[in-house]
Design a protein around this nucleic acid. Structure first.
Length: 289
DNA sequence: GACCAGGGTAACT
DNA sequence: AGTTACCATGGT
């Protein structure tokens, strides 16, 4: 493996919390404190001792760190400021943040997020990871082995657009296969230019994404938050719905519309961050199941 | 074997 | 505009 870089004194950078908070799927635990991660056509290995504010990143360099990973890991965002604002809201948020204070929201690639979250619908996270791995092994390209393990790049839009629905189905994505094909075709034929969405308003970008089959409001919000850094969106999956109902609505059943307006009103521009702390808090602890 | 998973679509009222 | 059955797959 190439050289390694050490990130020091990061108060809000917990590798395990970042990776296990449901925003990313192409990682594997290695040993006790390590994770391999495939992103940006590269494989890196992240190692962080318990309670440590230092992270060792194997398989990269200082140059790549500045050119790629500083942006990817969003190292220029002041999480202390975000945390102080959200924790001041109420005791629930304070507890959720204390539990996952090392979470960061990554800036991942739009195409990968689009396909990943199309797959995510009505699936458990381990299964989502498996489907993405299947697709990458079948339609991606092999990277140089790391620790005798070959990882594959995420398939390009062209590679998936040329695939048959049957071949995509063989990756165990089930009824989502035609959705994946529709996304791949709209991206390759220029119906949707993913890089243009960065410059659109959140509403405009969401509307564009939802023209793709299999992309509804929740999946669009995940793409907006995890790829386009639209930090005011509030992706509402089953966990978020339950934890918000449990913590803020006395356990009563509310509609998605109400949930959205509550999040916008209560968390404002930081709703996306709040969502991520609440998701991790609820799911890791099995709250309100 | 029913029920659930980081939901969405199409076909109903 | 607001419900509801159905959708593949694997885990509990």
């Amino acid at each position: 493996m190439k050289n390694a870089v050490i990130l020091k004194d990061n108060d809000h950078f917990n590798v395990q919390q970042i990776l296990e908070s449901g925003q990313i799927f192409r990682f594997e635990e290695i040993g006790k404190m390590g994770y391999s991660l495939v992103a940006k056509q590269k494989v890196i290995k992240l190692i962080q001792q318990k309670e440590s504010t230092s992270i060792m990143i194997h398989g990269t360099s200082m140059g790549e760190m500045e050119e790629i990973w500083r942006y990817y890991f969003d190292l220029d965002t002041d999480y202390q400021n975000i945390i102080d604002t959200l924790a001041a809201k109420d005791a629930h948020m304070k507890a959720a943040i204390k539990f996952g204070e090392g979470i960061r929201i990554l800036k991942q690639e739009p195409w990968e997020m689009l396909i990943s979250f199309i797959i995510s619908q009505n699936k458990a996270i381990p299964q989502i990871k498996q489907c993405i791995k299947n697709l990458s092994e079948r339609f991606g390209l092999p990277l140089e082995p790391v620790d005798d393990q070959v990882h594959y790049t995420f398939p390009t839009p062209e590679a998936l657009a040329q695939a048959s629905e049957e071949a995509i189905r063989e990756c165990k994505v089930g009824f989502r296969a035609p959705y994946i094909l529709d996304a791949a075709r709209k991206v390759t034929d220029g119906t949707i230019v993913l890089n243009e969405l960065y410059t659109l308003t959140t509403e405009e970008a969401r509307a564009k994404l939802m023209t793709i089959k299999g992309v509804g409001p929740k999946i669009a919000d995940c793409i907006l938050l995890f790829a386009y850094s639209k930090m005011e969106v509030f992706p509402a999956d089953v966990w978020i719905k339950r934890v918000v109902e449990g913590l803020y609505f006395k356990g009563e059943n509310i509609k998605l519309k109400e949930l959205q307006s509550f999040a916008k009103e209560y968390f404002g521009e930081l709703a996306g961050y709040a969502q991520q702390y609440l998701f991790f808090y609820a799911r890791e602890n099995g709250l309100f199941k």
